Computed example of a mutant assay.
Amino acid sequence: MTTVTQMKCACESCLCIVDLSKAVMKEGKPYCSEACANGHISGDGCGHHGCTCHH
C-alpha cells in the first residue's frame, strides 16, 4: 500500500507540490500557502521559486 504524502497545490494556477504534513488545508484541499488557500484575495502569489500563481 502506498501512502500519498505529496500533492499538487489545489490552486489552479499554482505549480507547487505540497507536502501534506505541512500543507495549508482548506475545505479538504491542500494548498502550499495561505495566499493560495485564501484565493489570492490581495493579489499576492505564493512566493515560491518559479511559481507565478496570483489568482
Rank of each mutant, 00 (worst) to 15 (best):
M1P: 07
M1V: 11
M1R: 09
T2E: 09
T3K: 12
V4T: 13
V4A: 13
Q6K: 12
Q6V: 07
M7F: 00
M7T: 01
M7W: 00
M7I: 00
K8E: 02
K8A: 12
K8W: 01
C9R: 04
C9N: 02
C9L: 05
C9Q: 04
A10P: 01
A10D: 02
C11W: 08
C11Q: 12
C11K: 12
E12N: 05
E12C: 00
S13W: 01
L15C: 05
C16K: 13
C16W: 00
C16N: 15
I17W: 03
I17H: 03
V18R: 04
V18W: 00
D19S: 09
D19C: 01
L20T: 12
L20E: 11
S21C: 03
S21K: 15
S21A: 15
K22I: 00
K22Y: 02
K22S: 14
K22L: 12
A23N: 07
A23F: 01
A23R: 08
A23Y: 00
V24P: 02
V24G: 01
V24A: 08
V24Y: 07
M25N: 08
M25D: 05
K26C: 06
K26H: 14
K26W: 02
E27T: 08
E27F: 05
E27D: 15
G28F: 15
K29F: 06
K29P: 00
P30N: 07
P30T: 06
P30Q: 04
P30A: 08
P30W: 04
C32Y: 04
S33Y: 07
S33K: 08
E34H: 10
E34V: 10
E34M: 11
E34C: 00
A35W: 08
A35H: 11
A35I: 06
C36L: 10
C36K: 09
C36F: 12
A37G: 04
A37E: 03
N38W: 11
N38L: 15
N38R: 15
N38S: 15
G39V: 09
G39R: 05
G39D: 07
H40F: 10
H40N: 05
H40M: 06
H40A: 05
I41N: 03
S42Q: 11
S42K: 15
S42H: 13
S42T: 13
G43P: 10
G43E: 11
G43S: 13
D44I: 14
D44W: 08
D44L: 13
D44C: 08
D44K: 15
D44R: 15
D44P: 00
G45W: 02
C46F: 03
C46A: 04
C46V: 02
C46Y: 02
C46L: 06
C46N: 01
G47M: 11
G47V: 07
G47R: 09
H48R: 14
H48W: 09
H48L: 13
H48T: 07
H48E: 09
G50P: 06
G50S: 10
G50N: 12
G50L: 06
C51P: 03
C51F: 06
C53P: 05
C53G: 13
C53W: 01
C53T: 03
H54A: 14
H55N: 12
H55K: 13
